[in-house]
């Protein structure tokens, strides 16, 4: 009994709190990148089920870039390119040729899983070379906030990029023509076409942007979070990102919040261990998915998807 009380008190201790917040943030970052990407393409009417494969492609190419060229930044660029290669299939097959987005999405996921694993095996065999620890950048002043400041505002630079990106997307969706075009491509592609904007081009750029962001999300996993590329390292995070994007209903700010929450549920295991509570890892692994199910049951009524989603656009066809 005393033991239980002691550990309950530990939950609110400083190391546990910081590990929960920082862990949630770090675990949520790849989700945030990927879900932000999915938000773009869902808005434009492309359901991207290949996200998992694109993340893995990005994780692999990003790792290669960082490993051979010794720079995390180069790694992230490579990661974005890797994700875009996956997205290119989506663009050509689904957007240009109008093939089934679900089938192609599943194919991209399988190809990403298989190909990265095969290439990794062919290259490194059963050894998994590690990258050095990522460099951190701290924000002046904010990192002086007591308790959480030093750890929360002292992150790898890519973390700040993510938040800037979310802000940019918020602005772009709200008050630029790009945002309007994307929305029209998902809501009523005929109207966009009638207005003289190419639906195909809009959706192509959206899908490519999604691939790039998913690639960066994957690269984050291999370069910063793990420092190593292992086959299937995304473990369903691509699917989680799709759910986050759907729950956020196309709103970047909601994506940030939801990703942070899921990040916390991903990182809660470490925090609980620090607090001296031992819970089965399977239960912990289950938490994010269970959270999503509960969220879907509660908010199910209000889930909203654009009517043009997953419907290929062919001019003059209804």
């Amino acid at each position: 009994m005393i033991l239980v009380f002691a550990s309950a008190a530990n939950i609110f201790s400083k190391p546990v709190l910081t590990s929960l917040l920082v862990g949630g943030l770090l675990a949520g970052l790849p989700l945030m990148f990927t879900a932000l990407g999915e938000t773009i393409s869902e808005r434009a009417g492309v359901l991207n089920l290949g996200l998992e494969g694109m993340m893995l492609a990005g994780a692999y190419t990003g790792f290669l870039g960082a490993y051979y060229l010794h720079s995390a930044t180069v790694g992230f660029v490579f990661g974005a390119l890797g994700g875009m290669i996956g997205a290119l299939f989506m663009v050509v097959l689904c957007v240009w040729l109008g093939l089934d987005q679900i089938v192609v999405g599943i194919a991209i996921t399988l190809a990403g899983e298989g190909l990265t694993s095969v290439l990794q095996g062919a290259q490194f065999g059963t050894t998994y070379p590690r990258l050095g620890a990522p460099t951190l950048a701290s924000i002046p002043l904010l990192d002086r906030i007591p308790v959480v400041g030093p750890s929360l505002f002292n992150q790898p630079p890519i973390a700040y990029v993510c938040f800037v990106l979310a802000g940019l997307m918020f602005w772009a969706f709200r008050s630029t023509n790009i945002g309007l075009n994307l929305k029209a491509a998902g809501e009523k592609p005929e109207a966009l076409d009638a207005a003289g904007v190419s639906v195909i081009a809009t959706r192509s750029w959206a899908a490519l942007a999604t691939g790039a962001l998913a690639g960066v999300g994957g690269a984050y996993l291999s370069i910063v979070a793990a420092g190593v590329f292992t086959p299937m390292m995304t473990q369903g995070q691509g699917y989680m990102a799709i759910v986050i994007a759907m729950l956020a209903r196309g709103k970047p700010i909601w994506v940030v919040g939801a990703s942070f929450l899921f990040g916390i549920s991903l990182s809660i295991a470490t925090a609980l261990q620090l607090a001296g509570i031992n819970i089965s890892t399977d239960l912990i692994n289950m938490l994010p998915f269970l959270t999503i199910m509960v969220a879907l049951i509660i908010f199910g009524r209000r889930a909203y998807l654009p009517p043009g989603l997953a419907v290929p656009y062919v001019r003059g066809m209804r």
Binding site: L110, A111, E113, G114, Q120
Partner: peptide, 11 residues
């Protein structure tokens, strides 16, 4: 060859 090659084939 890594067994995941089969996944590539399926894709």
């Amino acid at each position: 060859v890594p067994t995941d090659f089969l996944l590539v084939l399926v894709a």
